[in-house]
Structure formats: C-alpha cells, structure tokens
Design a protein around this nucleic acid. Structure first.
Lengths: 97, 97, 97, 97
DNA sequence: CCGTAATTAACAAAAC
DNA sequence: GTTTTGTTAATTACGG
C-alpha cells in the first residue's frame, strides 16, 4: 500500500537489510532436506511395487487393497476422535489423560 | 524374506489357494511402512512452513524460491552429466574420479 | 495435434475474430448458473446447521458424525469396487452385468 | 424417522437419554441431501469446464473471467443497494416498486 | 477479521 | 501415447 522507507532484515524489523536472508536460507535448506528424503522414500516405494509386480502380483489390485486398509485406519482414527468428542461433551475428557 | 511352505500358492496362479497371501501381505506392509514415513516427513515439512510463516515469511514466496532452486539444481545435474559424457567421449572419464 | 488445414475461427485461432466470443459467453453463463445454484444450496446447508445449533446441537459434533457417515459410504463403495476387481481377476466380471 | 416418545431427551440435556437421536438424525439427513445436490452440481460444473476445454478454451483464463464478472456483479448489487438506501432516505423508496 | 480446516482444480508421475 | 492416479496449490467456508 504505502512506501516503506526501511527495507527490513528480519520480518517485522524495518531496521536493516533485505529479508533476513540467513533465516530464510535456513528454512529453505531444511525444507529441501526433508523433500529429498521424501523423494528417496517415494522411489523406494516404487521399487517395492516393481518387485511385487515382477513376482506376479497385480499392482492395481494391490493399490486397491492399500486404499481399503488406509480407509479402515482413517475410520478408526475418526471414531477415536468421536469418542473423545463425546467424552469432552460429557465433561469426562480427562478419562483419556 | 521368509520361506513359503506352500509353493503352489504362487502369484498368477489362481487355481490353488487365494493369491499367495503371505507374500502379498509382506509387500503391503512394506509399502505401508514406507508410506507412513513419507507421511511423517510431509508433516514435518508442513511444520517447517508453519514455523517460517510464524516468523513472518510468506510461504507462497518461499515455494516460488524452492521451485527456482530445484530448477537450478536440476540444471546443474544435467550440465554435470553432459560434462561427464564429453569427458568419457574423450577418454578422460577418470578426471571425475 | 499437428497442422490444422482448416483455418476456421475456432478457439486457438486468433487470426480472425477474438476468441469465439459467443461460445465462450455461453460456457461462462452456464457455469455461472450452476454456480449460483451451488451457492444457494450452500446457504441452505448453513441455515440447517444454524437451526440445529439453535435447538441445542453442537455443530462440531455434527460435522464429525457427518464425516463418519461419509466415510462409511466411501468404504462401501470401495469394497464394492474391490469385489468387482476380484470378479474380473477370476474371469467372472460378467456377474455384475 | 419416528416420533420420540421421550420428550425429556432434548438437546443440551444429557441427564436423560442420549442426544435426541431422532432430531439429530433428521438434521443430518437433511444436510446430507443438500450436500449430495451440491456434489452433483459441482460435477456438472466440472463437466462444463471439461467441455469448454475440449473445444479449445483455456480454463484458467475462463476462471479469471468468471472472477471478474462476479466482481462486476457484486459491485452492481452494491450500487443498487446504495441507490435504494438513498431513495429510502429521501422518502422515495417506492420508486423501485 | 483472522486463522484454520476442508474442497476443488492444476500439475506431475506412472501405469498400461 | 494416453489415460488414469497421486500430489501440490489455491480457493472457499467455518468457528472463534
């Protein structure tokens, strides 16, 4: 909106340099490291699928099974959350610690 | 990883047992484990973004920067591969160790 | 995919008219009509939530219940798809018609 | 679905029955019905976008146009409301019918 | 009004 | 090659 005569070094700090380059760089590098790990694991998973396929399994069916199992887990999670919600509503939230 | 005591229940053979349940289960569990790790790391990354946001950075800009850096990196990789290709063609592949 | 030997005033051809204004306008208006209906229904839903809240229900709990019910339905859908997958794999896909 | 013969089980009263299950169910079902309609219309809209895309239009540009048009419309609405407000203030509210 | 949470579309990847 | 499928980004809606 308005001109800021003070380029800032730290977010919220109008006193010095650009945009806190060091902190920003640190955040970016942390993110990049995690992203690399994710990529490596994704590649691992693809390899497992390939191996299963090579031994004769149908990956489409496998994916369907995985989805079902994941849904089961999500359902349980949600039900546990419901239980806690009820407990809270009844003023017994502390029964879960 | 383990011996299958029932060699008839092989994948692709639906004439005997079901579909080699043990092997299938092993594959599914390996995949689920890796998937869990991926989920955990993805959550970690989200936390880092949240932390950066909390300290005043704009996550949208950060994402743009990350994309640029990834492109740079990919480009460097490609250039390095090209260099190596040329060096190999000149019988100097060993200069890279 | 390649050269179009017939230079009509089709979308992607900016050599003649603008960009097929009439067709574009028709699409936009259809979308706007549907969007309006969606907005109206969304408002209806909000009203129902408000009414339930006014009669003493906790909307948070209601949302949790709705989510559970939706998961149930999705689960059933997925299981039906699995059944079909198995049937296909056993060469009995036709039992579903 | 059925009448609740126990009028004490009102919402907000957890001293008697559960949580007025019938009323709650009715609310949930109304919401689910509306949600289904919303989903159907959303699917319709996606189809229209797909159709436009298939005839060569750029959906991203279309979305930008729709946003502009919506803004125009909102602005007109606001101006009309302002006009009416002024007319009312001047005791001429009836000029709009 | 803001921040969070859910939905939806765009993009990218991988299967056949 | 194309056609899903999965991931990421952005819009939108809800509650505080």
């Amino acid at each position: 909106m308005t001109d800021d005569p003070n380029p800032r070094a730290v977010p919220g700090d109008n006193s010095s340099q650009a945009v806190a380059p060091d902190r920003l760089r640190a955040f970016l590098e942390r993110i990049e490291r995690v992203t690399e790990e994710i990529s490596a694991l994704t590649a691992d998973r693809s390899e497992i699928f390939a191996e299963a396929k090579a031994t004769g399994f149908d990956t489409k069916a496998m994916r369907a099974l995985l989805k079902l199992r994941a849904q089961d887990h999500a359902q349980r999670q949600e039900e546990a959350a419901m239980l806690r919600l009820y407990a809270d509503a009844l003023g017994m939230g502390d029964i879960f610690g």
